[in-house]
Design a protein around this nucleic acid. Structure first.
Lengths: 218, 218, 218, 218
DNA sequence: GATGAATGAGTATTCATTCAT
DNA sequence: AATGAATGAATACTCATTCAT
């Protein structure tokens, strides 16, 4: 049994190695421009072996995306569940999002590419479902927080929390996108956090403006 | 002369046909996955003829991008120069951006793809320069408007107008991106404008919060 | 009639222009690598017009070769007919050959290429016949001179004049070939004439060695 | 190990098959007019497989040339090193040259083509370097022999051995060239050796004429 | 006669995928 | 399980030739 399980582990390990190699290459060169040959070389396996673990190049992309999304949700929940003021919760969620992907820009870019319609054609609906489902989960999370703010009277009530979450998400993603360009011509990685945090501040202030419970002069 | 000018016109027409076909295909399938053969078939021309009008597939992409950018800047300037309150100017600029690209989602996506790093590698700097230059121009425009707001005391002064513009731009682009997915799973095209306009409202309110000229109790 | 003849002349002129352009391009880039487009550009005519004067690219090569051979025969006969010693006649013929082609290396190379089997496949038998016929004529010429030398007892009689002529011809061509390489790595154009003349001397001396009428010690 | 070595051998075999097929086709149709498709068909492999063994069509030509040159040098050295009179050494070297290439006319023609300027443009310097280097080596060899003749007083001293070698080389090549035309219009393969040997005789006699050690009245 | 736009067969090269060992 | 040799369909691009104007 020990033998079997070692084998099993090795297999898992190899699977992971391949996914990681693919991750980096898809990011660096794009999905289309990455060849199986390159993935094989990077993992020091043969081309044939790749096909022992994955049925096709497309399936590899699916796995890369899936893996990228998994870990991310945990960070997000942790940030949202920490006991803080609502303001801070929102900021924490954004920060978690940014922090996660700034560490693995590859994954961010691959996911972003995948979400983009162009790739959708090449992919099984399975991948898309997984990605979409996760996105929606995250948005529900954020919406709930905003709703709390509204319920408590801290935030104005004339907004749709879900829509607001989408807007913040897109702003964050967009800024992240710019920051992780290899040759950042527009904003650099360092100013990203500042711009983002400032922007979130502004949006939160905007949320408070006109709130029923807004305390004068504050 | 009539003959010459007719020919010239037909040539221009053909050129445009090719660009339009490329536009749609690049959008639908991505640049890499689009073949010259497909462009030829779509225009009912032969492969060779495409090369009579464009030197390479890359040049074709350049033209698609260039064309996409041209008209857009005019709309933007018009929106910014219209006499309105600062709030409305900002909203008008965003609306112009959205309105333009919602009409030509292909172009938006191609431009977005092109800006994306992966493609940057494959492209002559020319394309990138044109796109970058336009982006920076637009951002300067928007920054100037925000600066006016700060100078007049309407907006808080602890923000960087350029950074703020970037944030708004990314938010808008992101929302646009979602809205023009062929199979929009997250937001639909109709609610886009509402979400965006609401979000801009919130941001503007946020900008005003804490502004020196803010009348207490507002 | 004047009009007709002018037209006729212009036509001839154009024909010649095309041949000359082709000549230079076939030489510079080889037959295969030269495009009709390039010939058209060089003559400032359109591609279609080239086909008004020549049925195909192959026919153009035929004409280039034919023209190259024409003028050459005259020089050769003149050299052979001049009244000189037999030694000098042989030298004069070689010199005429070299002088002619050193002036028009293009033609030499095109002819050489054409004689070479590889191109023969592409050509109508007509071209080959013309070229072969001229070569044989020239060789007969030279042979006759050598024969005179044998008959007069100046040259040894154990040789075949025709074969000898071929050998001298090939030696000359080979040296010429080396000398007109654009980037001559083996011999330069200046030393060509010296090497050749020295070699001819040696061969003539060899011809005399053992000749019946050889005067001792001379 | 047996398996590995068999595989290795098969690979070498395949490599050789491809080179041989290329050799014959390059000879029959010229480099430019030969397609990879044809080489594949002739070897009963697929186009893709050709590229498994050679990076490009150019590299294939390089190998064809390289292979052609290798064996040849050995024959040449053997001929030159055999103990014989100087006259016979010179004859032996020429004969070795002729004998080698008469067996592999393909290679001779491919090498000749490659040396030809037109091709020089398309090729990596590597091929040219190898060919040039070998040519120069061979010429040095021959020159040394002639020099021995001069030093020993058998040959006249007013000649440059290197130049003389070039002349003999070109004569030999030229004759060879004619002899191996598929449809030899000028000399046939059988008479080649006679013509060449006679010509060399004449040249050697010419070399002796006027030599210091020439016994009068000989 | 002259043009040049249009054609489409042809070329080198790449790469996902298969399969015998 | 792992390999890597073989495949062949696909792709960007070229060019001799035709033909409507």
């Amino acid at each position: 049994m020990s033998t079997v399980s070692r084998r099993e582990k090795e297999k898992q390990q190899r699977r992971n190695d391949i996914i990681e190699a693919a991750e980096e290459l898809f990011d660096a060169k794009g999905f289309e421009s990455t060849t199986i040959e390159e993935i094989a070389r990077k993992t020091e396996l043969s081309k044939g072996t790749i096909y022992l673990y994955f049925q096709s190049k497309d399936e590899l992309l699916l796995e890369v995306c899936a893996k990228g999304i998994m870990g991310f949700r945990q960070d997000l929940e942790a940030a949202a569940n920490s006991k803080r003021s609502i303001d801070n919760k929102i900021k924490a969620v954004c920060a978690a999002y940014i922090d996660y992907f700034i560490k693995v820009p590859h994954i961010f870019r691959v996911l972003h590419d995948t979400l983009t319609e162009r790739l959708r054609n090449n992919l099984s609906g399975e991948t898309m479902s997984l990605i979409n489902w996760t996105i929606v989960e995250v948005l529900k999370f954020s919406s709930a927080i905003v709703q709390q703010g509204i319920d408590s009277g801290k935030f104005r009530s004339d907004i749709d929390p879900y829509s607001f979450s989408i807007a913040v998400w897109q702003m964050s993603s967009g800024l992240l996108d710019l920051a992780i360009l290899k040759d950042p011509g527009i904003i650099d990685r360092d100013s990203l956090e500042e711009i983002l945090s400032k922007s979130i501040d502004i949006m939160i202030d905007g949320l408070k403006a006109g709130a029923p419970g807004e305390s004068r002069g504050r």
